[in-house]
């Protein structure tokens, strides 16, 4: 099956700022694709190019087999979009906005809208100006999820939602994936992407720096080990593939490259292991590795995410 989204060497500049600097993104049909990166990395710019709202300076972009700039109208019949910052008309109610977007996309499934309003606890009779950020997002989400489309493009869709609504959102995305829809999910909520995404692309300064399944990425990266040993752990830092060795509270924290795991564990065994915790890298750690020069961990090892769930 052809990919739903392919970009190659995509460049978009605003004056001297290169928002996209050779972006290579590929989203396979039928997958939930996590699009991760810090603010200002180019996620929203990339999405706006995919929607034909911005024209790329150079590079190739293909969406559902068409050109998002020249075939915008035809392609938009097949997708639904939720912006990161949903703005509504102050004097239209949420229900009116939901119906408007759904009808513009070419169809309104009244029963599905009603069902989604219930699940997301949205009162559709309130005027746009009275909604909180989270409720405005629900309006855009409900309208998108109620549409019969092939592709959902979601730009940080749950930034204003509470954890309960987050769970409803995840449930809806799983249903959509089961129904064969493709989802591009831009986020910096790592737990959400870890839970939902089949594949992940990490964007930094307008480029994709890492792409693959979470498993593949973990394979490429370091395992975190926290150990309490009988004899002094001095010398660990000199081993090949061992990084960030730190002794704290009588324990040693370190990170090991996957291919040097064996040797490191053998060395630890020789020191007399009293307790040992090892976990695969969380997305926080993956990101910290790529953005380490921008985000300085505050001395602690990055908090372990709900990895594995």
């Amino acid at each position: 099956m052809p990919a739903a989204i392919v970009t190659a060497d995509l460049v978009k500049s605003y004056g001297r700022v290169r928002a996209l600097d050779g972006l290579d993104l590929e989203v396979a049909t039928g997958e939930v694709h996590g699009f991760l990166g810090p603010n200002g990395a180019g996620k929203t710019t990339a999405i706006r190019v995919l929607l034909g709202l911005l024209r790329a300076d150079s590079g190739r972009v293909e969406l559902l087999g068409g050109d998002p700039w020249s075939d915008a109208v035809a392609l938009h019949r097949r997708l639904a979009y939720v912006p990161g910052d949903v703005e509504l008309w102050p004097n239209l109610t949420g229900g009116e906005a939901i119906d408007l977007f759904a009808r513009l996309r070419g169809g309104l499934d009244r029963a599905r809208v009603r069902d989604l309003c219930e699940r997301f606890h949205l009162d559709p009779t309130k005027k746009g100006r009275t909604y909180s950020k989270g409720n405005r997002q629900k309006v855009a989400l409900i309208s998108a999820l109620a549409s019969d489309v092939e592709l959902l493009i979601l730009d940080e869709p749950t930034a204003g939602l509470d954890p309960l609504m987050e769970a409803v959102f995840q449930e809806c995305i799983r249903e959509d994936r089961a129904a064969g829809r493709t989802v591009l999910l831009s986020s910096h909520i790592l737990a959400q992407v870890e839970v939902l995404a089949d594949r992940i692309s990490i964007i930094r300064k307008g480029r994709i720096v890492e792409s693959g399944t979470l498993e593949e990425m973990r394979h490429l990266t370091r395992t975190t080990i926290i150990a309490e040993t009988a004899s002094s752990p001095a010398g660990l830092a000199d081993l090949a593939g061992v990084h960030h060795v730190e002794a704290r509270d009588g324990r040693v924290h370190l990170q090991v490259d996957a291919r040097h795991l064996d040797g490191t564990v053998r060395h630890l065994a020789g020191l007399g292991v009293r307790s040992l915790v090892a976990h695969p890298p969380t997305l926080e750690e993956l990101l910290l590795r790529h953005y380490g020069d921008e985000i300085t961990p505050d001395g602690d090892a990055p908090a372990a995410g709900p990895g594995g769930t």
Partner: peptide, 22 residues
Amino acid sequence: PRPGPAEGGRLLGSAAGLAVRL
């Protein structure tokens, strides 16, 4: 504040209708 309609009327089905409404 009074609640408004939960569903969009006939105007809210096209770009032109939205413009008229606005």
